[in-house]
Design a protein around this nucleic acid. Structure first.
Lengths: 252, 252
DNA sequence: CCGTAATATTGACTGATATCAATAGTTGAT
DNA sequence: ATCAACTATTGATATCAGTCAATATTACGG
């Protein structure tokens, strides 16, 4: 930084219409004029640095956020002071839904790396979605998708061995990244092993052992945060094995 | 039944305005005229008998349902044919949200006992909620509440001992029933132990042992489905104990 | 009323995973 | 470069909860 003169990049128009996540995000299915109206209410705050928070529990709920780049973890803090990681949020995913029902956020949203988001003032969004039917539909889709997907994963986890859980976790990340145009087989896990263990409900040591285990079986190459999936099908196979379940026969 | 003559009860008007669940349900906050418009789109199908289904996976998504009385379990069926119970739904709770994001239901909704529901054709509901802001707001609240509450429970379960999980489950049922004006300390569990175990991710035998355990410690009286909570605080204490967690210190 | 099937309970045994403990690698500040 | 703090890995041991097996209880159809 030898000069105080700021080099102005040609002003990049940050707009939904230019966004690569458009098809996964709220604008999906909207026409040009509708998109413009949505754009008017979308704010784009400055990027968060690692460990900066987007909101805290008890903060008044005003906005939903969509991750544009980077990643965010959300967690609650129990009365005894320990964290419960409630989710990891990748580009194109919504953050803030925990505030909708009570008008205040119930968890902390913290950037795992430098992260930029779009801010959607929720009440403006509601108003607008009352006027643009496609937006309302898409909002509902996103809301339920976000939460249902999580729920499915969590429920499955309950029945899985530690091995299967870690495999399922890797697959979840992999699939979500792929949907967003990233590699499905090579990525960085931005969260710590502790976060993963916390989220999956197992000890850090167990997470670590599973990574080692997968590596020894040549399913993945793992070097700290950097993960390369060598045998995606192998991982899928492992995640599918549910060692517990008997045969709860469906009634006719 | 000595006579074939049907005794006609004075036609009871089934309307949102008369419903005891009003304050927990969609009508919350609506005025008389708005309530009437909502009432116009609400259908009230004949009650389901035990083990009858409300919908199946792949059925086209058309409606949300609110349980009026009785109870419903939802479950998915894995490729290997076994069930994964995804939730239990008590009076005033929504069923069908799993269909919103993909336009087809992803699980089976099955009555655990004789159960009556209100049917809310979703697309009419969307249209109407575009016109009645209070309805839109309440719909969003309910959608997120339903799902977030579940998620919180499931996440916590991941970290809890079997004992704590069963305790938390009982508390969840108890609290939800209380909100609906039922007793918080005495109720029937309409689902089987197998269902509970499936939902909580543990073996039936373990569920059974925990019930026995709680009974021996005089926290509850349990006779099959019938549960009486003697020491609610005791149960709360147990559910709060999280034997795993270390102290993941929040960063400053 | 009886017999069959479904559901629930209890006991014995075993294995997966948490816990404790020690070490090693990484990151960032001075 | 050095140190401290954090993060990750690995090993040894204990324990919780799953599995298998047997029995008890309830529900239901004939």
């Amino acid at each position: 930084m030898t000069s105080t003169k700021v080099i102005r990049l040609p002003q990049i128009k940050v707009a939904c219409s230019e966004c690569s996540l458009r098809s996964l995000c709220l604008p999906f299915g909207l026409d040009g004029e509708e998109l413009e109206r949505l754009d008017e209410i979308v704010k784009r705050p400055r990027p968060l640095q690692r460990s900066q928070r987007l909101y805290h529990p008890k903060d008044q709920f005003r906005s939903l956020y969509v991750v544009r780049s980077g990643s965010i973890k959300t967690y609650t803090t129990t009365s005894t002071g320990d964290q419960q990681v409630t989710g990891f949020h990748l580009p194109g995913e919504l953050v803030g839904l925990d505030g909708v029902s009570t008008d205040e956020y119930s968890c902390t949203a913290e950037a795992l790396e430098t992260t930029s988001v779009c801010e959607l003032p929720f009440f403006k969004l509601e108003t607008l979605s009352g006027q643009i039917h496609g937006l309302q539909r898409q909002l509902h889709r996103l809301m339920s998708k976000e939460i249902i997907a999580d729920q499915q994963l969590l429920l499955q986890l309950g029945k899985m061995s530690a091995e299967a859980r870690v495999a399922a976790f890797l697959l979840s990340i992999s699939a979500r990244l792929q949907q967003r145009g990233f590699s499905a087989t090579e990525f960085n896990l931005t969260m710590t092993r502790t976060d993963i263990g916390n989220y999956l409900g197992m000890a850090v040591e167990t997470v670590s052992r599973q990574f080692t285990n997968f590596q020894e079986q040549a399913f993945i190459k793992a070097s700290r945060k950097h993960i390369e999936i060598i045998d995606l099908n192998g991982i899928k196979r492992i995640s599918g094995i549910m060692p517990c379940e008997r045969t709860p026969q469906a009634k006719a």
